[in-house]
Write a protein that binds this DNA or RNA. Structure first.
Length: 350
DNA sequence: CACGCGTGGTG
DNA sequence: TCACCAAGCGT
């Protein structure tokens, strides 16, 4: 399985990681690791869920706020749903936040607060798929799990000069990643692969001159490093339109609603509005003197949204009082809508 | 299994 | 400006 080349790559990678490992709030660095310190599984799990399809830079402050407010899995399990959704607001992919809370409650109530140590058991928990299960097993419990994220796909495709496109070639990349996974320090190896992919073996303009495994990189030898991994072309994003209605009461209260659990922005707070489609009908939540405040474009995973923001001053039952309304609790789209509405209202009334 | 699901940085 | 991309998962 692991012949001279694979073994040499693993050794070079670990030596590089020992020198260059990135410092992150959820990590135990190589030095502390060697001194016997191990990362807290709760923090590993929380960071890995936040990092799903999300950059390190975006996660840092969210991770700090979550761990300051909920230092362990029991504290998080006891949190109110609305508080967790508010703290997650802006990070995106809100199903992660709902599954995070479900998972915390299972671990807290059914597993006595201890995360499972095997990939098989971790996989059964909500929000933990093949990648996250492997990452927790490797990083928190130092199990020789295979950890394949977008970084590892790229690194492996380049090292072995795999030219077939994703996603079809993913199983082969996983097998190749398995060949590189050592029995010793698998957690450090997993983090080293991801650090290499995030810094040197980057998607565009890889810094091969600094790469610890360049001498064993078939992609570099073939001059293909910048083109790998190949990916199937993505369909164009359609444009949808919609209306959002921001009602502000005499004392500054705001009319908000919580969206359904499933679907786009599921479980988040927002302003009432129309459907989002090619040609939506206006859909004011009640009759009032609605004025157009402006519009915005927001891009989701699979479509662009052009949203027209309407405002009215009106008292309504069920408004969120001004003192309890924090725009930071809203997903980014709704925060943008609020910024437009607020500017219009303050300029119109002075 | 292909698709739905956010957001901010970047070239 | 805008398409692409990032430590994927659930259905």
């Amino acid at each position: 399985m692991r012949d001279g080349k694979e073994s040499r790559i693993g050794t070079a990678l670990l030596a590089w990681y020992d020198r260059e490992a990135r410092v992150m709030p959820w990590r135990t660095g190589p030095e502390a690791w060697r001194a016997g310190e191990r990362p807290d599984p709760y923090r590993v799990w929380l960071s890995e869920v936040m990092l799903q399809q999300t950059t390190v830079a975006a996660v840092r402050d969210y991770f700090r706020r979550f761990t300051a407010r909920w230092p362990d899995v029991h504290a998080l399990a006891a949190a109110a749903d609305a508080d967790v959704m508010a703290e997650w607001a802006g990070l995106g992919y809100y199903a992660r936040a709902r599954n995070l809370l479900k998972c915390a409650r299972v671990v807290s109530h059914d597993l006595d607060g201890r995360f499972p140590e095997t990939v098989e058991e971790l996989r059964k928990l909500p929000g933990i798929g093949p990648y996250t299960a492997g990452a927790i097993a490797a990083i928190a419990f130092d199990a020789p799990a295979v950890v394949v994220d977008g970084n590892v796909e790229r690194v492996v495709a380049r090292i072995f000069a795999v030219t077939d496109p994703l996603p079809g070639v993913k199983p082969e990349l996983t097998r190749l990643a398995e060949c590189l996974t050592p029995q010793e320090r698998p957690g450090c190896h997993a983090q080293a692969m991801m650090d290499l992919g995030a810094t040197i073996c980057s998607p565009r303009n890889p810094a091969c001159g600094l790469c610890p495994v360049r001498v064993d990189c078939a992609g570099y030898d073939a001059g293909l490093q910048a083109e790998l991994p190949r990916k199937a072309p993505k369909p164009e994003k359609p444009v949808r339109r919609g209306f959002a209605y921001v009602a502000v009461g005499p004392a500054g209260g705001v009319l908000l609603e919580r969206r359904p659990e499933k679907g786009l922005l599921g479980g988040t707070l927002g302003f009432p509005g129309s459907d989002w489609c090619e040609a939506p009908d206006p859909a004011p939540p009640f009759a009032a003197d609605w004025q157009e405040a402006g519009s915005l474009r927001h891009t989701f995973t699979h479509f662009h949204l052009d949203l027209t923001v309407m405002v009215a001053r009106a008292a309504r039952p069920g408004m969120t009082p001004k003192a309890q309304f924090r725009p930071a609790d809203l997903p980014t789209l709704m925060r943008k809508a609020w910024n437009i509405a607020e500017a219009a209202i303050s300029s119109q009334q002075g």
